[in-house]
Amino acid sequence: MKVCLTTTDSTASRYIAEMLLEHKYCTTILVDTFEDRRNRPQSLSRKIRKHYMRGGLLDLFLLLKSYFGIGVETGSTIENFFGPVPSWSELKERHDVDIKFVSNINNATSDKAIKAAAPDLGILYGGRIIEPAILAIPRLGFINKHSSLLPKQRGPQAEFWTLYKEELESLGVTIHEVTPGLDAGAILLQENILFEDGDTPQSLREKSHILGGDLLIKTIRLLESGNVNKIIQDEAAVSVNGMPSLSQLAALKKRLPGLWEKTREDK
């Protein structure tokens, strides 16, 4: 099966690309650089207005701390699990794969590149919403990895919202069809992730990348064999979230030790 991967420039994206390439599935990779957005930089004053509207004075305080480098924390990466992940140039050299960097996955350049590749399947792994004209190019459409058990926690930062709402039963990974609706396509495969003592949104995100890679390979094989069981999402059970505010991020950080303690008590 010929697969076209559309993604962003991140360590996790290169990890997924390498996995697909090692299984001889990926023939074309389009990396969305978001140059069209970077050419419209946000001023600090605009960021201040946005964060004040989202989270009030506390958000403003946390934004300014981050802006001036005070108390900024960096999380671990997927490389802590598997060691260094190859660069795009290394992947291209090792696997002789066509890798293109595009300013917008929905522009004419991307459309032409995907049509030229004539993939059976497209995989969206991070990035912006793909427009219907692009979604229609692969014979089997596009699939996506989402970091929750859909239909719960649609939208960005699913790991955060699962912990923030204390809905740990929705922790997991879903492989689903991509439709114009946000994370609304039919479910193809799901598997839960166990919340463990010390877990954070960042560690859960790393777990979801690792599990997501395995489930993508399994889903491709099911599609090849024609044995995939599509499950339409129950709209009555849907929850949709946006980006968390800085104050919500800070609130969860304070509450996490309580969740860890509850996990220890449940053992």
Rank of each mutant, 00 (worst) to 15 (best):
N192L: 06
R255Y: 06
L249W: 08
L222S: 11
I210M: 12
R221N: 10
S76M: 12
W260M: 00
K24A: 11
H95R: 06
I29K: 02
I16G: 02
G212N: 08
T74F: 11
P132L: 11
L259E: 05
D199R: 03
L140Y: 07
S103G: 10
W88I: 05
H51G: 01
T162K: 02
L211W: 05
S103R: 01
A236R: 13
R54K: 15
I137K: 09
V85D: 07
H51K: 14
D98Q: 08
S203F: 14
H146Q: 09
D32R: 03
L215A: 06
F142Y: 10
S10M: 07
S10K: 14
A116Y: 00
P257D: 01
G141Q: 10
T263N: 11
I48L: 13
G198C: 03
L194H: 15
V3S: 02
I193V: 15
G83V: 14
R37E: 12
I232T: 07
S89C: 08
K65F: 01
L124C: 08
Q153T: 12
P156F: 10
A158H: 03
T179G: 02
I134Y: 00
Q153R: 13
P119W: 06
E159H: 04
A251P: 00
E90R: 03
I143L: 04
D98G: 00
